[in-house]
Design a protein around this nucleic acid. Sequence first.
DNA 1: AGACAAAAAGCAACAGTGTTGCAGAAAATG
DNA 2: CATTTTCTGCAACACTGTTGCTTTTTGTCT
Lengths: 146, 146
Amino acid sequence: MLKQTAIQIENQVGELLKRNSLSITDSRKKILQLFLEQAGALAHGDIEKKAGEKFDRVTVYRTLQTFVDKGIIHTIPTADNSIRYALCKDECSEGHHHDHHVHFVCNKCSNTYCLDDVVTPDLKLPKGYSTEHIEVVVEGICKNCN
Amino acid sequence: MLKQTAIQIENQVGELLKRNSLSITDSRKKILQLFLEQAGALAHGDIEKKAGEKFDRVTVYRTLQTFVDKGIIHTIPTADNSIRYALCKDECSEGHHHDHHVHFVCNKCSNTYCLDDVVTPDLKLPKGYSTEHIEVVVEGICKNCN
DNA sequence: AGACAAAAAGCAACAGTGTTGCAGAAAATG
DNA sequence: CATTTTCTGCAACACTGTTGCTTTTTGTCT
């Protein structure tokens, strides 16, 4: 993804909120902006820090939940017990996440990335098991750290 | 896995602890026993409940950590932000987990299972990324609920 | 622009989860 | 059986996430 100018990001933020019929508020703008500026995924804690101590913890939680409900971001499960969030691709709509891509956690810089081009493989499960969703998390060293 | 008698489990518990040069204590015996009696994975909370209110929370946490360090159990990341633990196969030794199998979470009964026979597939990552570990979690309906 | 209704933010309080330090209890060792 | 080592339980704390309620902000309609 190419680096965007501040104005481009601001437009995109407004557009995203409008498209999802969400009120345009400071916290939503700021949090969306953080996601757009950043290639990787963010945990709740990251957001609180990066937002510059301006928003209440509760507001951040509720904003993230709203974004997940609307399909703007999706969650990434990790081994360290802290949920991370990342922007969804455009195909995601309310209630229907199509995030069938692989997630990557760097063991060096601890950043989490969505590898949008790597699709989750099909798996043959034992008899009796039916699949609804497959989550693949790869740990290793990322492009920037290698 | 076939159901074992109480005595078989007791022997297995003692043997596992000895093999890993761990003191044989009530809490370790009880917690290991829970894992052996149960096909699926257990979260910290499950263990506290099933153990019958006998052990301190801290003891349970420390016991689980010890077992993970020794390679007796391994962790399974889940979307709901609660780490689950499951017994390792025998190949696991201290510091070297070889749990390259798929984990399955049932959306009906919420149980988590290790599908030991389903191996994690190879993935082609974008240039610059190197893989150290792949974690696959499948959500769906399990054998018992189907 | 101003008034109103709806939505969101902020605050306080709480519940759950996991960690650390320390004193006493239990296990391993000889 | 005595000693050393290890483990447990307790208290206190930090972090994470949630809920109810009041105040503020946003969107809407004239």
